[in-house]
Structures are given as C-alpha cells and as structure tokens.
Write a protein that binds this DNA or RNA. Structure first.
Lengths: 266, 266
DNA sequence: GTTTAAACTTGATATAGATCAATCTTAGTA
DNA sequence: TACTAAGATTGATCTATATCAAGTTTAAAC
C-alpha cells in the first residue's frame, strides 16, 4: 500500500475505516443464513454448500480468501439478466443502476459492506438493476439453487432467512422514508450523510466519519441533484462547520444539526 | 348507497373500481400465509389461528364479515408503540406517517387494498410509523405471536412467508427507484400516478384509471411538493390531455407519455 | 335549502437549484 | 518530475417551484 504525499491522510483514514478490508461476518446482513445451525443435535455449516467464490476480476491484490470475490470497476450483474445468486458486499462499495430508454444511467442505490444485493428479486426471473463495483470491491455469493436445497432440509435456516428478509424490508422502508419528499438540497445531503454513516457504523466503528468511496457525480445522480449543486452544498456545510471534507472522507462534526436538517420537512 | 346529483359519477366509478368493497383474497399480498397449506397429507387452514378480527371503529356500515376490521379516519397503530400484528389492507387506503420533533406530520407511504402494513418491523420492538385509515377502510390482522407458533409447526408456511417478504422487499425497492432522485414536479406526479395505478391494477381491474382516495394535501406531502404546485401540475396534465380528473378519480389517457415523463431523468 | 368549513385552484412574486462556462484539483501515466 | 485526463469547484444567469394571497368549489352541518 503506497503512500503518496497528498494521499497519506486518505490511506490512513481508509485503513482506519477499514474500507479496504473485508467486513467481519458478524456484522454482515447475510450472516443470518451463513451461520452454522443446529440440526438434529448436530452443528451444520451449510454455507459451505451454497456460498461460492468467483474468479477475481481486475484485482490489484489477488484475493487469497476462499469466500470473497474480487471485482474492480466491474459489472457484478446486469439489469434484466437471469437471477442466479444474491450477494453480500464484503469490501468496497457497489452502485445499483437502471438505464432508461434514452441511455441515461440512474443510480438507484449504493451498497456498503455487510449489505445485500439482489435479494429483492429473489423470486423474480431477472435482476431489477445492474450492480457495478466501485474501485476494488468484493462480495460473497449465495447460489439460490443451492441455498434452496439446503433450506428444505433445515427449517431453522428458513427462519433465519425470514428474519433477514424482514430486516431488509425494514432497511428499505427506512431508506425510503429518509429520502421521499425531501426537497431542499441541504436536507437531501444531510439525510444522505446520516443514512450512510449509520449503515456503515457497525463496520467502520465510527458514528461520525465515513468514506463515501463513490464519486460526487454518483452521489449527485443518486440524490437527483446536479454535481455543481452538490458541490456547493458540501462547501456550505463545511464552511458552516457541520462537516469536514477530506476528499471522499467526510467527518460529521455537528451530527445533531445535520439530523435536524435531514428531518426538516420543507 | 345514495346517489347525490354531483356525486353520481363518483359513486359509479367507486363501484366500478371496487374501492368500497373488500379485495379478493387471491389478490392480497397476505394470501401467501393465509392460504390453507398441506401438512402430513392433511389440509390445514392455519389462518383461523392467527387471523384476528377487530371491533369496528366509526364504521358507517358495520362490517358483517368475520375477517375484516373496519376503521374510519382512525389510527390503526401509532409510531413507536409495541408491534403485535401485521396487517393487510382489505378496502380503502391507509396513510403511513412519521411525526418530526416540530410536530410536522410527514406521509411516508400509502397502502392500498392487498398491500401490507407493518411487516417491515416484524422483528423490531415497535412500529416505525403510524398507520391512519382514510375514509372508510378495513384490514385483516395477523397476530405475530399466534403466527409464530403456527409457523413452527408447518415449514411450508415459513416458505410462504419468505416469498411474501422477498416480494415486499422488491416492491419497496421498486417504489424507492420510482421516486429517488426525481426532481421535477412533472416527473414526480407522473411516477406517482403510474405507481399507484400499477399497484391497484389487480384489485381494480383497470390499468388506466385509479381512485386516489387520499386528499391532494396528502399526495403533495408524500411527494414533497406544495399543494399549489401539485394542483398546477394536475391541471397542466389535464390540459395537455395526459389525464382526465374527476375529483379523486384519475383517468390515465396517455400512459406512454406519462411513463416517459416518469422515467425522465432530469 | 342555507350556512359553514374544508379542500382545492389560480395568480403574482421571490428564491433555490439548474444550466452554461471557466477554472482548479487529483490521480494516473510517461 | 512533467503531462494528461478525469473529477471537482466556483461564478453568472435563467427557470421551476415555493410562498403569499385571494378566490372557487366541494362537502358536511344545520
């Protein structure tokens, strides 16, 4: 891991935030169905049967673990292609996109370590968005077919999946509530920063700083703002002492005020 | 059902759209866990054990069915109160609200017949929003406690719940995708009309007209627009021949154009 | 049928954010 | 270290939507 002059801080923070390391399994949403379960008084680790590894793509440092798939700036899967697996992000970040008829790519979600990708299409034929790795990222892959055959044998596994799905449903609803009907750029960005920090809290160990990893362009696209507007709001927040910006790393200096802004209803 | 002079059309359409009738079970999201299941070669209708009825509240025409709870302009449950049941809307519509510190009530969702309420908090202590009946509405109630005890006995029931939750997760994600990052009032309203029509399609039997049931105020609140702005966009859409307005009933005359507007990315 | 309140619409003005354009910064490469 | 391209910021102007205000329609109550 080289340290350029200007980059030094960045790397330090990335290490501090653990963004280039894989998430601990106990902090991962997938954990509910990966954990060994008790069946007939025996302990079974069914994950061995359905958790796949994939060939690393464009990996700078080849992944040595068995579980994690390395992808860099690569498409994990494309919209409207057959659904075969669901994924949990292990490291890095993935953007979820849909492409409109005119070819415009709209960012409809971001997934950070420990979060699921594709589980919302579990009983559909096809994926409902494309998933694209930002920078160097990795995932765990769960084959639906293999999981199903395991699930039939172990009822407890199914209960765990129920809990996982319900939790996801909650996460999605919370997400929706955070952003629906927000009109001002200020409250949108505040809601976004609070939302992402919270989602990464268990993983990064910090409730006041986050590494966005994605470009300003992607954030602006996701929020429905112009990159110029987003830039201005970022600058304003920093000038007002609400945040401190170090490239893609954001320190939330006055979280209370940001929360007020995020909840502000106009 | 009386027919006033000006009201006649309205009532006719409401009947045509079936808004004052309860949804057929086969069109309801809850159906996956209400249907009788096969267990040990026997058919069990477990719904009898966990599907409750509730005392009608403010009902104009008392409900004679066993399953459906009648509530009118009433709170079904309040934010941050203990979660005991999940619900499926049988008739009418419910608005989901969160109240901010300053007392402002934000509409974070609308639930039409066949849709679930509260399932996203299934494994939480408390409900994460309040649910309020608009006009005369009714629900089916599933007691969590009773469902759980049934579920343990019948694995198939659990599989059905998995399917239900995954589908809900998909619905939520689709919802999110429809509204996140939409900036213009035009595309917001277009997305809203398409979204609600689609959600009600199986129930109303129509893919080109819908009965909003909720006030313009609630719609504007949900979309993050001012009622004046919403009113102007409604008027513009009608003037342009995209829709026809009959009070709360909206006819989608040019669905293709509305879809284009809804997908429009600026 | 008349009265009253609530819901909805329309008009005029002010403002937040888009747009267009230029500049600056960062990261990757020679 | 210098060069290059992509990403990010800043400035000036224009436009869509909020805001304030008045008026109209609808629905409920008397």
């Amino acid at each position: 891991m080289t340290t350029g002059k200007k980059l030094a801080n960045n790397v330090v923070y990335q290490q501090a935030l653990g963004q280039h390391h894989t998430i601990a399994c106990e902090n991962c949403s997938m954990n509910a169905i990966c954990q060994p379960v008790e069946a007939d008084g025996q302990t079974l680790d069914l994950s061995k049967n359905y958790l796949n590894k994939k060939i690393p793509v464009n990996a700078q440092a080849p992944d040595t673990s068995q579980r994690h798939t390395q992808v860099k700036n690569r498409i994990l899967f494309e919209e409207n292609t057959p659904l075969t697996s669901i994924y949990a992000v292990c490291s890095g970040v993935f953007k979820l996109c849909v492409t409109s008829k005119d070819g415009y790519e709209k960012v409809v979600g971001l997934r950070y370590p420990g979060e699921l990708i594709g589980e919302d299409a579990l009983f559909l034929e096809n994926y409902n968005y494309s998933a694209i790795a930002i920078g160097q990222s990795s995932v765990c892959e769960v084959s639906i077919e293999q999981f199903s055959s395991c699930g039939k044998l172990v009822p407890e596994l199914q209960q765990n999946l129920i809990a996982l799905l319900s939790k996801q449903s909650y996460v999605r609803q919370s997400n929706f509530q955070s952003f629906i009907g927000k009109k001002s750029a200020d409250s949108l960005l505040a809601a976004f920063l609070i939302n992402i920090t919270k989602r990464n809290e268990a993983y990064t160990g910090s409730s006041s700083k986050l590494n966005l990893l994605v470009s300003r362009n992607d954030v602006a696209n996701f929020l429905g703002l112009r990159r110029e507007t987003l830039s201005r709001v970022f600058a304003k927040f920093q000038k007002e002492g609400l945040i401190k910006i170090e490239g893609k790393i954001i320190h939330l200096l006055q979280k209370e005020l940001l929360c007020d802004l995020a909840n502000f209803h106009s």
